Amino acid sequence: MIVQVLFHQVTPHADITVYETDRLYGEKGHFRVLQFANADVQGALDLNNPERIVFEYPRAIIHLLEHHLGDLQHIFMIGQGIGTLSRYFADRHIQVAELNRTVAELSIEYFGCARDPLWIGDGRELLERQPDHQYDSVIVDAFDESGTPNQLVSLEFFTLVQHKLHEQGALIMNLIGRGTHDTRIHAIYTTICEVFPHVRCFQLPVEKNSDVRNIIMMGSQTLIQYQSRQLAGFTEEQPDYAYVIRDEY
């Protein structure tokens, strides 16, 4: 495998590397990758086919939102990464909040994202400043080196999101967890259920039940429907109920 490092920097929020490789998860090609220090790949661009969405979770998110909302127009997204979703929704009214300025700049320089929809800062604080009932969807795809930050999975945060969505709008989250062996995933699900009457959870199949995998959770005031064959391999799973996550004061 050939790897060429294009960028590496330790920032206050993450140890970040951008590199190119001729092999990604067993697939041969030419890929540009954003990776954090814990070896988690945050995003990948297929340089031979830049319009291709490489990973399954953004393809599943796109289907869930478009099937549920139809022609969604107003989106608020927390977490830019390489900008896969912000590029896909570039013809809509999308606002993206990214805490790490370096990640935002890399998404522009190395991954072809536009500068206009990007705000640098805390996504929750920026969302608080927006008018109520404005958005079709709030997308959360934000990670630090321990996972999704607590302030983005609390009861108070989900209540804030509910106020910013219109009556048919939807919250959708990309999470990382261990499925039925992950109490925190159960707690996030429980907390979303406190705010949204309709909640669905989808997971990528893994070899062992304890393996880490992508998990998508979606909450709405209205019934959530989808087509299984369009979920890029995700299947619906029902987490257990656990505790409610609250802000730490």
Score class of each variant (00 low, 15 high):
G26Y: 05
V206G: 02
V244H: 09
F31P: 00
D136E: 10
V206A: 06
L175M: 08
V33T: 09
G112P: 05
A39D: 11
A44W: 03
L65E: 06
L171W: 01
E125V: 05
G112M: 08
A37E: 11
E20F: 04
F36P: 02
A242S: 15
V153G: 14
D132S: 14
A44H: 04
F158L: 12
Y19G: 03
Q230E: 07
T84N: 00
Q73S: 11
V5R: 13
R59G: 02
Q203S: 03
S220Q: 10
Q227W: 01
E105S: 08
V206R: 05
R92M: 10
N174H: 06
E248W: 10
S86G: 03
A232H: 02
Y88P: 05
L34W: 03
V244Y: 05
D46T: 00
D40I: 05
L118M: 12
H198T: 09
V33I: 13
Y57H: 02
A37N: 10
C193A: 15
C193L: 15
R213N: 04
V161K: 13
I16C: 00
V161M: 13
F31V: 05
L6E: 07
F36R: 07
W119C: 03
E194H: 15
L175Q: 04
V3I: 14
E98C: 11
L34R: 01
N100H: 14
I120C: 06
S154D: 13
S137F: 08
H74I: 09
D46R: 01
Y135V: 08
F31L: 05
Y189F: 15
E236S: 11
P149H: 09
I61V: 09
Q130I: 06
S146R: 15
F76P: 07
I176R: 00
L152T: 11
L204V: 08
G233H: 02
F196N: 11
D15H: 04
T148Q: 03
R229D: 14
L175G: 02
D182F: 00
Q130G: 04
D136M: 08
E145Y: 14
G70T: 11
I172M: 03
N49S: 03
F7E: 06
Q4L: 11
Q221W: 06
L231Y: 02
T183L: 14
H74Q: 13
F36D: 00
G123F: 00
P131D: 12
Q134E: 10
Q238V: 11
G219F: 05
Y135W: 12
P117G: 13
N38Y: 03
T159L: 10
P117Y: 09
L152R: 09
Q168L: 13
L155I: 14
P239T: 12
V54Y: 00
L204E: 05
I188G: 01
I61M: 01
S146Q: 14
N38S: 04
P197Q: 14
V161A: 13
F31N: 04
F143Y: 07
R52H: 03
L24Q: 07
L99G: 07
I176A: 05
L47S: 12
G121D: 08
K208Q: 08
S107D: 04
E145K: 14
D132R: 12
R87Y: 06
I61S: 00
H74E: 14
G81M: 02
